[in-house]
Amino acid sequence: MLDDRARMEAAKKEKVEQILAEFQLQEEDLKKVMRRMQKEMDRGLRLETHEEASVKMLPTYVRSTPEGSEVGDFLSLDLGGTNFRVMLVKVGEGEEGQWSVKTKHQMYSIPEDAMTGTAEMLFDYISECISDFLDKHQMKHKKLPLGFTFSFPVRHEDIDKGILLNWTKGFKASGAEGNNVVGLLRDAIKRRGDFEMDVVAMVNDTVATMISCYYEDHQCEVGMIVGTGCNACYMEEMQNVELVEGDEGRMCVNTEWGAFGDSGELDEFLLEYDRLVDESSANPGQQLYEKLIGGKYMGELVRLVLLRLVDENLLFHGEASEQLRTRGAFETRFVSQVESDTGDRKQIYNILSTLGLRPSTTDCDIVRRACESVSTRAAHMCSAGLAGVINRMRESRSEDVMRITVGVDGSVYKLHPSFKERFHASVRRLTPSCEITFIESEEGSGRGAALVSAVACKKACMLGQ
């Protein structure tokens, strides 16, 4: 009897593995994704193909990295998701002549009506938060230079001027797309009239992360975010950046690689679950690469896999709870928690219980395998993109072996128990001629924006502006 049951459990697990095998990517698959990513990057950089390229390769006008001589107080704003952060950054000489960066910050959550109302409502709310922060720190009387981390696709015309191309991540505030974001912020500050600010720089969160990590390690020339969304930036040779005049030196390019796949480059790798996630998203047909990796989508992918296993009578005796059938019910943090389970399955059992399920031991094991399959594919897909960037940098610099540091931020990278190990191992397999160091950014977005502002202020002083 026991043997029969054991055989049935083994057969069930084997069927589960057959279904989950769809998520496995072979090294040849990853090399294919990497080569296609490089081709799209090239198209994004070139003037004649930029418009139709899915990977936009947006110039950021960040050319210099901090040298350690900029000092002063800077205000930093960070808008990239449902939370908005205001930070005071003091850049100065530390002990023994070292450079020191001290920060104080406060988080504000953005109400739904500000995210989806008008641009005026959104930026009025942001300036209200700045006003509140300055009151708390008794700094209303000071006109501070301000660095703005704005983590949406922007076409820069200068370091302090950028046109919002399109909202992502659930934002829909009308009247912002096609307009200068810094102008919208300046107008809102003017409307309030109770404080003055000098907006000197606007950067993407990947750029802010790279600059913040450069402060720790001067070989950091790539910034990457794996959180709600997924994106990367890197220092490109100016001669390859056709959208900006000049051939000397390097400029940081914001790849906006989340949109890779929007022209069909990933079609052969998309599964039924991916198509369902895409169809029910706020932007169907867009940001397809990001939807395979980002935390906004990972939990939902797992939920759809679990429903398939229920329908195949391989999980929960073929019956799903009402909660499990509800879109968004299986949160991405559950994926991390399930994979963090120590082996007694308590954590998995508790999560499934909150979803109205009474799982068996085998159910718990199957749910864990589903989570591992989805998150491992995410790590491997992400590795193909980064390997594409790094191999490109090595080739354009004609280096036999390139040493490089990548600064990384984002909740999936930082909080998932195995993502970074799987990701690092896969990147290294795909970049055999590179020695890569990964560092995690601390308060990256805010500190990085302030350091970019410090560079901009120093330049302005040198130019006598």
Rank of each mutant, 00 (worst) to 15 (best):
K346G: 13
G68Q: 09
Y289C: 11
T149R: 03
G81I: 10
D135N: 10
Y289R: 01
Q106D: 09
L352R: 01
R303C: 03
E245C: 11
A384I: 03
V182L: 03
E272L: 09
Y215H: 15
S396K: 13
E120Q: 13
L301A: 14
E248T: 14
R447C: 08
P284W: 11
D194L: 10
E339T: 09
I159Q: 03
E268H: 12
Q38I: 08
R429A: 13
R327Q: 05
K32T: 14
V86C: 02
D158Q: 03
V305C: 09
D4R: 11
S360H: 15
K346S: 15
C213H: 05
L270H: 08
L309Y: 10
C220N: 08
T255H: 02
E9V: 11
Y349L: 12
K346W: 09
R428D: 13
C371V: 06
D194S: 11
Y215Q: 01
S64A: 14
E395F: 11
K143Q: 05
G388R: 02
S64C: 14
M197Q: 04
Y273W: 13
D113N: 07
A378V: 02
V199Y: 00
M121Q: 07
L30Y: 12
A384V: 01
A460K: 15
R327C: 10
T168I: 02
A387I: 07
A378G: 08
G448M: 02
L185D: 00
M462S: 12
A460I: 15
N350V: 10
S69M: 06
G246M: 01
I126E: 04
G444Q: 02
T49W: 09
D187I: 04
G285E: 09
V305L: 10
W257I: 07
E331S: 14
A11N: 14
S373N: 15
A370E: 00
H105L: 06
K169A: 07
M251Q: 14
A21I: 10
S263A: 10
R422L: 11
K161M: 06
A449M: 01
R46I: 09
W99Q: 07
T332E: 01
G72K: 05
A176Y: 03
T437C: 12
F195Y: 03
L301H: 12
F260G: 01
Q24E: 01
E256I: 00
F150E: 02
Q219A: 14
T431R: 04
S418Y: 11
Q323L: 11
L47V: 09
E14R: 13
S340L: 11
L75V: 12
I404K: 06
E221Q: 15
R46M: 09
V455E: 06
L165W: 05
D344V: 07
E322R: 14
M121K: 05
G318H: 13
F423E: 10
S433E: 09
G117H: 08
E120F: 04
V91W: 04
K32G: 10
S100C: 07
G446I: 14
L77E: 06
V367D: 06
Y289E: 07
D262P: 13
E268R: 02
G92T: 03
L270E: 15
E221T: 12
A384P: 02
W167Q: 01
C457Q: 08
T206Y: 00
G229C: 05
L164N: 02
E339F: 02
L314M: 13
L352D: 05
L355R: 06
V91C: 07
V302Q: 15
R358M: 14
S375W: 01
A173Y: 00
V389Q: 02
H218V: 14
G264D: 07
D132C: 03
I348T: 13
G183D: 15
S375Y: 05
D344T: 04
D409Y: 09
M8N: 08
G229H: 01
E67Q: 08
E322I: 09
V89Q: 03
I189H: 03
D124T: 03
N240A: 15
G444W: 02
E27Q: 10
R394F: 08
E237K: 14
I366R: 13
K136Q: 11
E421I: 10
R325A: 14
G94A: 09
M121R: 09
I404H: 09
R428L: 10
C457H: 06
A173R: 04
S398E: 10
H317C: 15
R36K: 14
S418R: 13
G229V: 00
A449H: 01
E9R: 13
I126C: 01
T405R: 13
Y413N: 03
Y125Q: 03
E96G: 09
E272P: 05
E67M: 11
D344G: 08
V33C: 07
E339D: 05
K414F: 05
E312K: 14
S445E: 00
S418I: 06
A454K: 02
L164E: 02
E242S: 09
G410W: 00
G258S: 11
V455W: 15
T362Y: 09
Q323N: 08
L301C: 05
I436P: 08
S445K: 00
F419D: 02
G264V: 06
C213P: 15
A454S: 08
T116D: 06
E9A: 13
N180V: 00
D400W: 15
G229P: 01
T362G: 08
F195H: 09
L79F: 04
H156R: 01
E279I: 13
S426H: 14
T362H: 11
Y108A: 03
G299Y: 01
R325M: 09
G193R: 03
M139S: 06
G328I: 14
A282Q: 15
S411H: 08
Y215S: 15
V338Q: 04
R403H: 07
Q219V: 15
D124W: 01
A21K: 02
I225Q: 02
T168E: 00
T437P: 06
L315E: 05
A460G: 15
E443G: 11
L307Y: 05
F316D: 08
A379K: 07
D187F: 03
A232K: 00
R368V: 12
S441I: 03
E93L: 09
K143F: 06
L306Q: 09
R358Q: 02
T437M: 11
C371E: 12
Q24A: 10
G229I: 05
V33T: 09
E319F: 15
R7E: 04
A188N: 00
G117C: 08
Q287A: 00
E96L: 11
G264S: 11
M251S: 06
L463I: 10
G117A: 09
S453F: 00
F423I: 13
D278I: 06
D278H: 10
G175C: 04
R43E: 13
S131Q: 02
A454H: 12
V406C: 05
E279M: 15
S398F: 10
I293Q: 03
V199S: 05
G285F: 12
G246C: 06
K140C: 03
R85I: 00
C213I: 10
C364W: 05
V338T: 12
T103Y: 07
L271G: 08
E272C: 11
V182H: 03
D205W: 05
R303L: 05
V203F: 01
G92Y: 07
K136E: 11
T342D: 10
V310R: 14
